[in-house]
Design a protein around this nucleic acid. Structure first.
Lengths: 228, 228
DNA sequence: CGGAGAATTGAATATAATCAATAAAAGTGG
DNA sequence: CCACTTTTATTGATTATATTCAATTCTCCG
């Protein structure tokens, strides 16, 4: 669909726990994730951590760096990560020249904002089991979009500590909530592999609205940038 | 700075509680707020409400509509609102043609995303008093940027119910927390007028990091679109 | 095999929600 | 401008959800 011959992407690899970006260190390349999970987070002075975004295969990390080279939050790999690194300037240039790239970037940005909005709703108004249910639905939808689901199951590499830092809970409470979900026959989670038995029921439970999320760019073809 | 002669903005007025946009109703104009506050929110089936964004004077409501005409969340005026309505198509066109407009829009988008990220941290990891403190700092910073603060005080039109729906708390708990803040001599809040006595202390308390937020566009002049 | 991080469970505690009632303030219409 | 209604603010008492502290077990990895 798109020719990106002029975008010189560099293959990059990160190991789990390795930083893709640090707070305040200029970042002149964006990463297009090919494989693995990463997250953006903030650490409060007393050690509390909140994950503010998850980057999954297909996602850009981070579009904001196109405009502002100084990340205000660190990004760290949660698993081994394979990505394509592309100079911010090159993307800007491509953006200038091609309508469809512009549109794709813009759509990705809006999708990101929408997920953030969902998280706000999650954190502000939902119980622990609702939050985790919603989260699992989100994972399923996002991974499904890039062909990484296998029916009702998929790789979910987050530890309970990570889940806690996403869902705004303590690891202990995440543990108990997962137990509850397991005992109710809703999910199966072991060895970083998640199976959702009752997707519809979990969607209801998590108040997940898939419909709206399926067309984040309102009819524009969901073009995905692919780099060399 | 910018000539916008080709952007035909229409003056629009809304009364408090009037909808600027409804979920699923196509929205072909964006609003540039001149005066008053509005919010975007989601209502859960059982009545829980979470406000996911606040629009203050100077803000666009909403940039996402440039790409996607169908809002996925309603926007309602919290006070009387005066705004300029501009066709999404016109903004897109201006965006295509002018680098500085493109840059300004992009910066606004990033600033919005950053505020959302802050809210996630707020909701996920902070206590009630920390959340409200952070919120008040955010209001102060945002209003200060458009000249609507008077020293340490400013108009803060949210009811305790609104505050609760922003901060992910119950109105009752907001009430008690405000009482606590008052009794500690941190703030004064009456008749929709907020005075912050100890801004530095409230910033510490709310874990508010103003520094990062002051330069949302990384050195690019903070150009603000002004319409006829 | 050994060690570190992760998962699990119990008990006690804390923060915030819920229920309920009253008081104050703001909006409405005559 | 005043009576009336509705919304908002306030407080107390009780309950619920989630946290904290602590200890043990399990898993993964080198």
């Amino acid at each position: 669909m798109l020719s990106h011959d002029r975008v010189d992407g560099t293959a990059s690899f990160f190991r789990a726990h390795q930083y893709l970006a640090r707070e305040g260190e200029a970042q002149h390349r964006l990463f297009l994730l090919k494989e693995g999970w990463a997250c953006r987070f903030r650490l409060l002075p007393d050690g509390r951590r909140q994950i503010t975004a998850l980057f999954l295969p297909g996602n850009w990390c981070e579009l904001a760096w196109m405009q502002n080279f100084l990340p205000d939050q660190p990004v760290v790999a949660l698993t081994n990560v394979r990505a394509t690194a592309i100079p911010a300037a090159a993307i800007r240039q491509q953006c200038e020249q091609h309508v469809d790239i512009r549109s794709a970037i813009w759509s990705e940005m809006i999708a990101q904002e929408r997920r953030q909005s969902d998280w706000i709703i999650n954190l502000g108004r939902k119980s622990a089991i609702e939050r985790l249910s919603h989260l699992f639905c989100e994972f399923h939808t996002r991974l499904h979009a890039c062909g990484l689901t296998y029916g009702d199951q998929f790789a979910m590499p987050l530890t309970q500590i990570d889940l806690a830092d996403v869902a705004g809970l303590t690891p202990v409470h995440v543990n108990r909530t997962l137990r509850e979900m397991r005992s109710r026959g809703l999910i199966e989670l072991q060895s970083k592999w998640l199976r959702i038995f009752e997707l519809d029921e979990i969607r209801r439970l998590g108040l997940f609205e898939a419909g709206l999320r399926e067309t984040p760019n309102g009819g524009v073809a969901p073009l995905r940038l692919v780099c060399a």
